[in-house]
Structures are given as C-alpha cells and as structure tokens.
C-alpha cells in the first residue's frame, strides 16, 4: 500500500495539487495571525517591562507570603471583618435590585420591538454603552466624591454600573422574544401596550429574573473590592490587611469571600432551576 502510493506520487501530485501544497491560503493566514499575536505580545513585553528576572524574584516573595497565610486567622479583627462582609452583601443586594428596577424601563426603550421611537432606542443604547464603558470601581470613585466615604457610595456605584449591563442584557432578551404570541394579541385587536404587557413581558420576565440572580453573584465579587477606593464593604479591610502585611487575616478574608460566593452560587442556582421548572 505504501510502496504503491509512493510510486504514484508524481501522478497524485498532478491530479490533486492542492493537497500537496505546503503553503495553503488557510495556512498562510493562520501563520500571519499567530505572527501578529506574537508581535503584539513582544510589544507588550517591551512596553510593560514584563522581565522574567523580576517575575522569578517576585515568585519567591509570593511563595513566602503564602506560607505566612496559613492558617487563616482573623486575629483581633473578627468583628470588623464580619461587618465588612455584611456590608458587601448588602451593597450587592441593593445594587442589583435597584439596577434591575431602573434598567427594565430603559431596556424597553432600547429594544427594537418595544421602543417608542428609533431615536429613543439610539439614545438609550448610547447611554447604556457609556455607563458600561466605566468600571464599577470608577463609579465608586465618583460616588465617593459625591456622597462621601462609606457603603452608600458603593450601593450607588454597583447600581449605576449594573444599569448599563442589565439594560443591554434585558434588551437582548426582549428582542429575542417570540413574535407569535405578540401577533396573536395584535390580531385580537390589542394595542402596542397590550402587546408588550401580555405578549412580550410574560415570556421575558422569567429570563430576566434568572439573569438578575446570575449577576448577583458577580456583584458580590465586585462589591468585595470597591472598598479599595473607600466605598464600603470588605475591600477596605482587605486593603488595610495587605498593606500592613497581616497575611493570616488576608487569607481569612479571601476564604470568607470564597465561601460567600460559593453559597450564593448554590442558592441562585437552586432558585434559577426552580424558576425554570
């Protein structure tokens, strides 16, 4: 079989030149993409000074810190840390809920099938894009300058930055709504509002509720860090402990965050399954 094929090689090559081409268009393209990727990486290494030597030196330091982290121990700060975790949870809860309530009407304006005018849709989309372009941490910075230090600024930061996310996600869900029930309502003489209330929302609300639950978990993680700029929650204490090199307390806080997120993940998974079922 092998000898036969090799004997026929010139003839095969003539019949199927494409198979024997070492450089195909797809191959060249793939190579160019890879080369561009490596080039960008080289640029990053040069610009950002990602020096291996520094990396290795730092790893030693890091390993040292990690050995100091065990066992996790809150030390004298247990009360403070628990209060911080409570604040974090409260910030995430209020922020998510508030954002969902405000984002729903905005999303109705931003969705093609429920907006009142295309200009309205265009304007609300741009506003949502703008809000989403700014990280929650920057919003926290802004709100701290407005209402002062403390968890209230954190609530507002999570709330505003989530309006952007929810507005986009909700409007996509609205646009994905099945047209058939809507046509049924219009054909029975319903007006536009009836179409949205009876034809669109019943389909979409469960989807939206699921998404809100899903984002609650990610918001807990966000609200755990906005304390870095003084907007309340556990982040403030975490920064303090890291700055003062109290590694056991640091690992205790990280552990608490992990547990909190895992618990919320389980609960929200149950709730979402219950809603779907």
């Amino acid at each position: 079989m092998r000898t036969e094929a090799l004997a026929n090689l010139p003839q095969l090559r003539q019949q199927h030149p494409a198979v024997f081409r070492r450089l195909t268009w797809g191959g060249v393209l793939a190579m160019l993409v890879v080369l561009a990727g490596i080039g960008l990486l080289a640029l990053a290494v040069w610009r950002l000074e990602l020096v291996p030597l520094r990396f290795i030196a730092g790893l030693g330091q890091l390993a040292h810190f990690i050995t100091l982290m065990f066992p996790p121990d809150p030390g004298p700060h247990l009360h403070l840390i628990l209060r911080g975790i409570g604040e974090t949870l409260a910030i995430a809860f209020l922020g998510t809920l508030g954002a969902a309530i405000i984002a729903l009407p905005v999303a109705l304006m931003a969705a093609r099938n429920t907006t009142i005018h295309w200009l309205m849709r265009f304007a609300s989309r741009r506003v949502l894009d703008g809000i989403r372009g700014i990280d929650a941490l920057i919003w926290a910075l802004i709100w701290v300058s407005v209402v002062g230090l403390g968890p209230f600024a954190g609530v507002l930061a999570i709330l505003v930055s989530d309006i952007g996310t929810f507005g986009k996600v909700f409007s996509e869900a609205l646009e994905a709504a099945d047209r058939k029930p809507q046509e049924g309502i219009l054909s029975a003489g319903g007006n536009g509002l009836a179409r949205i209330r009876l034809g669109v929302l019943p389909q979409v609300l469960p989807v939206i509720a699921g998404q809100v639950l899903y984002f609650f978990e990610s918001n807990v993680r966000s609200s755990a860090i906005i304390g870095i700029v003084g907007a309340g929650g556990i982040g403030l204490h975490l920064t303090e402990m890291i700055r003062t090199l109290e590694w056991q307390a640091v690992s205790f806080i990280i552990l608490l965050i992990l547990v909190l997120v895992a618990v919320i993940d389980v609960i929200s998974g149950r709730l979402r399954a219950a809603m779907a079922g």
Partner: peptide
C-alpha cells in the same frame, strides 16, 4: 474555581506587594 472567584484586584493588591509597582503584577 479559586482563580475565578477571587477578584482580579485582590490578586493585583497581593502581586503589587510581591512583585513591586508597575504593569507586571497587573498583567
């Protein structure tokens, strides 16, 4: 799971102490 749950800024805070200020800990 661990890498996903701990926010990137927490890693950044730790790495800044270990690797020094600059983009390296950020990356």
């Amino acid at each position: 799971e661990f890498c996903r749950t701990v926010p990137d800024l927490v890693f950044a805070l730790l790495f800044v102490i270990a690797f020094g200020l600059g983009p390296l800990p950020g990356v």
